[in-house]
Design a protein around this nucleic acid. Sequence first.
DNA 1: GCCGTTTTCGGCCCGACTGTTTTCAGTCG
Length: 597
Amino acid sequence: MTLSQEIAERFRTMAAILEIRGEPVFKSIAFTRVARLLDDASIDLADLVARDALESLDGIGKSSRSIIVDFVRNGRSEDFESLASSIPSGLIEMLNLPGVGPKTIALFWRERGIESIEQLESALNQGKLAGLKGIGPKKLEQLADSIRMRAVAQTRVGIGHVISIASTLLEGVRGFAEVERADVAGSLRRRRETIGDLDILAALKAGYDGSVVTDRFTTLPGVREILACGPTKASVRTDSNLQVDLRVVPTDCYGAAIQYFTGSKEHNVKLRSRAIERGLTLNEWGLWKTTDWEARRDTVKATAGLGIDYSTAVASRHEADIYAKLDLAFIEPELREDRGEIELAAQNKLPTLVVRIDLRGELHCHTTASDGEASILEMAHAARALGLDYIVITDHSRSQAIARGLEPERLLQQIQDVRRLDGKIPGMTILIGSEVDILADGSLDYDDDILQQLDFVVASPHTALRQDSQRATERLLRAIDNPYVNVIGHPTGRLINQRNGLEPEWNRIFEAAHASGTALEINASYPRLDLNDDLARAAIKAGCTLTIDTDAHSTAGLGEVDLGIAVARRAGAEAKNILNCGTISDIRAWVNRKRHR
DNA sequence: GCCGTTTTCGGCCCGACTGTTTTCAGTCG
């Protein structure tokens, strides 16, 4: 975690405290906003503080600036500490309990002296919560459930696990006779790397009752528990403990609804402010002239949106119309995080995001020579069948003994094999490379006289992934400095929800990679997705070139690139930012330029 | 707490569902 991200956590804590203290919500919103700003991997906090330029960031004012400066200069902040000591620290954790919010926490604390989840649990067991205003038998039952479930409920699930569950449920909903169409919304549609809960949106055919759809949804296979079920919304928990929300809307406002339920929340908040500036109101039913909407609001509430005439809406049926009528270019779901995309859309300066067909080659994959399942030729054929023009064979280097990493002699033999096979498949160029280990000290697993015989070199860290930031920085810088290294493979070594991987000083890494002509990989295999979206975004901002590689260990693996594309799109990447969206000549030029610099 | 081609004060997005209520507060996204 960088210093900036650590300070972001402090601001989140302060926001939580303000909520529990019952301060005006806008204070905690402001602190949460500062936290989001500080999460951005590309900001150089030390530099901003040194230049006294913090307040140039939209959302940071006097108070926040002073707190940040204190943390950066002294490692602590009196403002933070006095706020933190104003409530017991155990209260903050209670916010994680589903169904428990700041008001409830404050009530328990004030009326019953409860200061932690543990105390809440024992008070519950001893019946001490009975008689509190607004707390009835159902609420007590829900509390007990929340406490029991808290360990599992806290973690967001990796996108690789959610996708198959989502497609099964989506297929189920699409099968209902009353449903015109259905899609995934929420963070899965935005392709975030982890998913809190799954959102599905269904369009109801004219003349049908939404309750029929939500009721039937709760009986789909895999549904374990029903959390809520009304005429327009149902919430369930699956056998795999994933919460799934279904929303049912009339077809006439499907576009507004999919926009609304795709989020992110922050993106939508800003969009609605933009609507207000134009005398409009934006909600899940449509974009309306505010006066029109106010005349309809009561009807909508009474009929769940079925009793209104959508032809008077400024936009409702098509998602693209919502953006167009707000004078914005269409914003792809992957960009909807309020990271500047609305401002870019207003100036028609959004990036043209990379798409799968932009990819022309694979730069990182394995064969039976190390731990892959297919031969060189089988991999090359499969790549050609996917429409690719070139493939680089990059088996593991010798230190990866467990993956049958190649000793220099076997690598030299493989060079001969590839030279012999290249040209056998029309339209496909086969290159010989290696995924060479970056050892803990930054030295490489092969000598330069071996590396210089290869067409392309991926250098990756596989071990010593817990080393401190300074050593990690020196390690990666040393690898980047090697003239034969063309891309750093899965630069952090992280695995989603399993390990954090290396946390070097990214500004130095990006600068060196850019200056030396070394690409940085977005490894598309789950659970790697490494670099992640934030770091990839910062890398592009720093002028770096990226690759999108499958790291395939089988012919099927070569096709599993979509999550990597998604990461690149979330980073705002265009084809020109991605090395393997170039031709084979571009790849050779990339290699030669670094060797002769 | 932050911000300003309507504002340096007065706003700050919007609605669904639940539970405990006789009309609404709290939570959630």
